[in-house]
Each structure stands twice: as structure tokens, then as C-alpha cells.
């Protein structure tokens, strides 16, 4: 099994102080697979995906990304981060740089790409997220939805194999959620391996190959969207779904 997996978490444990935030988490993700992770807040879903690019350090178990095991080895961490793109809830654009500079910065300085080539790449990425006209603005001048699309473009510019999304639409006004989700659907249809933490169940139904439900640091249920939404096994999942779909 693990030969096909591009991401593999085995018995991962992590504590914040005394709080056991990840408890024996096991997850295998195949190439081009789209995983949607959901669960109540504090269930460890953000922490889990942040462990995959080592923004958080796991304390027990093993995480292997694209054949590279995440350990204290800094070289490995750098290599994994080059493979894995991440989009945050709060966008985290660099406010002192223009949109175009936000996107070209990492290709120029990390990948040593010539400036002209990087700018061309940035414009291509902005076309993909449908806001090429904003290239010379600063993040503070954009709406939340536009900022989040720039953040996606910034990640894609590093040409990652895997994209992690940490509640990408939770900080957005309702009318902007769709423009971001549309970009993500395009990305999924393009064959990107994605792990998405989100409560957008409509998105999950259309895009996900597999649903992962977490609660209290454990993966409670893993199932296809069809089974997950129509016939969930655990009571905890049923309760969560009834709450979230009633909104």
C-alpha cells in the first residue's frame, strides 16, 4: 500500500503541553487523491495538516511525504516544503509586497529563477486564479476572496505536488467563498493531490475522493463522500453532520 502513497502518517502523536492533540493518527494519501478533513474545532485537523509540512512538529510516529521522512533533519524539511504548498485561513500574504512580488518572491529566492521568468510565471498563476488585473496592487487593497486567490497563486508558483488547505474559506464573507472554491475545484480537476480542511460540505461532495472525520485528536471515520454523508458509521459523525447541515 505505502508504495503508492504520496503522504503517509503512521501512529502520529502530538501534545501541546499536557493536551494530547493528535492520538495515533494514521492516514495514507495516494497521488492525485483529494481528501477533505472535517470535524469540530479543537479536533486536531489543522494540527494534522500542519505536521505534514512541519509547521508543527510531531512527537511520536512517522510522517513520510513523497518518500522523504520528516525528522529533525533540516534538509529534509526544506525538501518537503518545496513539494508541499499551503494555503492558510488568514491568507498570510506579505503586506509590504505587491501581489506580483508576493508570488515571485519564493521562485526567485528559493528556486533561483530569473526575475523575468518568475514574473511571467506569476502572471500565468494570476490568470489561473482569475485576477491578473490586480498584479500591481498591495494585499491591503484587495478583498478577502481576492487575497485568498493570490495566496493560492503564490503557493502554486512553487509548482508543488501536494496542496494543503487549512480552512481556506473560514475567514471570508459568504459572497466571496464561491470564487475561492471555484479556483480550488479547478485545481482538483487538474489532478493536484489535495488535503483540504473545510466545513464547506458542498465542496466536499463535488471534489472529495475521501472524507476524513476527526474528533478529539483521533480519526473517527474515513469514507467515500457518498457513504460519509448518506450512511455514516459512527454516532459522533452523525451528530456532527446533523449540526453542520442544519445551519
Amino acid at each position: 500500500m505505502s508504495e503508492e502513497s504520496i503522504i503517509s502518517l503512521k501512529n502520529v502523536n502530538k501534545w501541546f503541553g499536557d493536551f494530547h492533540v493528535l492520538q495515533d493518527v494514521n492516514l495514507e494519501v495516494k497521488k492525485k487523491e483529494r481528501i477533505v478533513v472535517c470535524g469540530p474545532s479543537g479536533s486536531g485537523k489543522s494540527t494534522m495538516i500542519r505536521c505534514i509540512n512541519r509547521l508543527e512538529e510531531h512527537q511520536e510516529g512517522s510522517i513520510v511525504v513523497d518518500g522523504i521522512e520528516l525528522t529533525g533533519n533540516l534538509k529534509n524539511i526544506d525538501n518537503v516544503r518545496k513539494e508541499v504548498g499551503m494555503v492558510f485561513q488568514q491568507f498570510n500574504l506579505f503586506p509590504h509586497l505587491s501581489v506580483k512580488e508576493n508570488i515571485t518572491l519564493a521562485p526567485i529566492w528559493v528556486k533561483k529563477m530569473p526575475k523575468a521568468e518568475a514574473e511571467e510565471l506569476a502572471m500565468r498563476q494570476l490568470e489561473i486564479v482569475k485576477i491578473p488585473e490586480q498584479a500591481n496592487k498591495y494585499p491591503g487593497q484587495l478583498s478577502g476572496g481576492q487575497q485568498q486567490r493570490v495566496a493560492i497563486a503564490r503557493s502554486l508558483a512553487m509548482n508543488p505536488n501536494i496542496m494543503l488547505f487549512d480552512e481556506p474559506t473560514s475567514a471570508l464573507d459568504p459572497e466571496m467563498i464561491k470564487e475561492v472554491l471555484d479556483v480550488m475545484v479547478d485545481l482538483a480537476n487538474g489532478g493536484m493531490t489535495m488535503i483540504v480542511v473545510t466545513h464547506e460540505m458542498g465542496f466536499a461532495k463535488t471534489v472529495a475522493d475521501r472524507m476524513v472525520f476527526m474528533d478529539e485528536g483521533k480519526i473517527v471515520e474515513e469514507a467515500s463522500p457518498d457513504k460519509f454523508f448518506n450512511n455514516p458509521e459512527s454516532d459522533r459523525t452523525k451528530l456532527f453532520l446533523s449540526q453542520i447541515l442544519h445551519q
Binding site: 526544506d78 492558510f88 498570510n92 529566492w109
Partner: peptide, 24 residues
């Protein structure tokens, strides 16, 4: 979040500080 964004783009400690953190 600024540190995290810089790290997730694969920037080293010095690049992150020189390009992202210190200018701000």
C-alpha cells in the same frame, strides 16, 4: 502567520527574516 507563510514556501531562516520579517 507571516513566518508560517514564508516557511511553507520553503524559505530558510535568513531569507525569511531578510525578505519578509525584517522589512515589516
Amino acid at each position: 502567520g507571516q513566518y508560517e507563510a514564508a516557511k511553507s514556501l520553503g524559505m530558510s531562516y535568513w531569507r525569511m527574516n531578510l525578505l519578509i520579517i525584517l522589512p515589516q
